[in-house]
Amino acid sequence: MRNKKLIIPAVLVLTIALFTGCAKKEEQPGNTTTPATQTTTPTTAAITTAAGTTSAGTTSAATSTTDAVTSASIVDNAAAFEKAIGTNGTWIIAITKDVKLDKDITLEGEYKNGKKDTAGKDIIQRKVALYSQDENRNITARYTLTAPKFTIKSPEASIQHGTFKGDLYVSVKNFKLVDATVDGNVYFTSEDIKKSFSMDEKSKVTGKQEVKTT
């Protein structure tokens, strides 16, 4: 009887060892167990603009640290700027150096800035950003946009923190200058549009501000 009692535990130990060995074998690479996925974070040189941080040399959507940006165009040349201000452009256009165009240009199209008002409706806005900033929102550079004539047709538009050199023609209400200079005239298509125009104490217009219907 004593021998039988010793044999039974020994058989149990051997059986457990065999099952354990099989389980380990199934976990080896090449079987059904899924290996852990590795995540690689690419490193890229970056610049900070009025629209946030984006990879150097790109013209694309960017996430902003100062604006709730759904999409933004970061541009450094006339052709890219002209495309960005059109109806197939983006709500915010930020230049990274002085840009000069030798023809008339138009800011057109209605855009949403990705925010909601107190009633839960999308906020309409269009912003021409003529500056760069650091991560603390301090302005680090201001740029000059030059064109013979710049017509503003996008609602709730503004030019911010830089200089436009040329004449502005405004045909929408609530156009704003924010810490910006217009080195030229500002013409409005109606008296109501002129009355809705605003600029802060840091902004200035070197020429006329008047209604011009033609």
Rank of each mutant, 00 (worst) to 15 (best):
residue 153 K to E: 14
residue 101 L to Y: 03
residue 145 L to P: 00
residue 71 S to Q: 07
residue 166 G to W: 05
residue 122 D to E: 15
residue 43 T to D: 10
residue 76 D to W: 11
residue 183 D to M: 01
residue 179 D to R: 12
residue 201 E to K: 15
residue 67 D to A: 11
residue 102 D to R: 09
residue 123 I to D: 00
residue 114 G to A: 07
residue 148 P to Y: 06
residue 47 I to S: 06
residue 121 K to H: 08
residue 48 T to Y: 01
residue 3 N to F: 12
residue 84 A to H: 02
residue 66 T to N: 12
residue 47 I to N: 08
residue 81 F to Y: 12
residue 93 I to D: 00
residue 124 I to Y: 04
residue 107 L to D: 08
residue 12 L to M: 13
residue 7 I to Q: 11
residue 178 V to R: 12
residue 12 L to G: 15
residue 109 G to Y: 09
residue 167 D to K: 06
residue 200 D to G: 08
residue 177 L to K: 08
residue 79 A to Q: 13
residue 109 G to M: 04
residue 173 K to F: 07
residue 65 T to Y: 02
residue 163 T to S: 07
residue 46 A to Q: 13
residue 91 W to H: 14
residue 65 T to N: 10
residue 143 Y to E: 03
residue 177 L to F: 09
residue 108 E to L: 06
residue 92 I to E: 01
residue 4 K to R: 12
residue 54 T to V: 08
residue 122 D to G: 07
residue 14 L to E: 03
residue 158 S to C: 14
residue 212 K to M: 11
residue 93 I to T: 09
residue 112 K to P: 04
residue 120 G to I: 10
residue 5 K to I: 07
residue 129 A to G: 09
residue 196 S to A: 15
residue 147 A to N: 05
residue 112 K to D: 14
residue 172 V to A: 04
residue 60 S to H: 02
residue 34 T to D: 06
residue 191 E to T: 14
residue 17 A to H: 05
residue 108 E to H: 06
residue 29 P to E: 11
residue 116 K to D: 11
residue 30 G to C: 03
residue 54 T to K: 03
residue 190 S to K: 02
residue 136 N to I: 04
residue 153 K to R: 14
residue 123 I to Y: 00
residue 43 T to F: 05
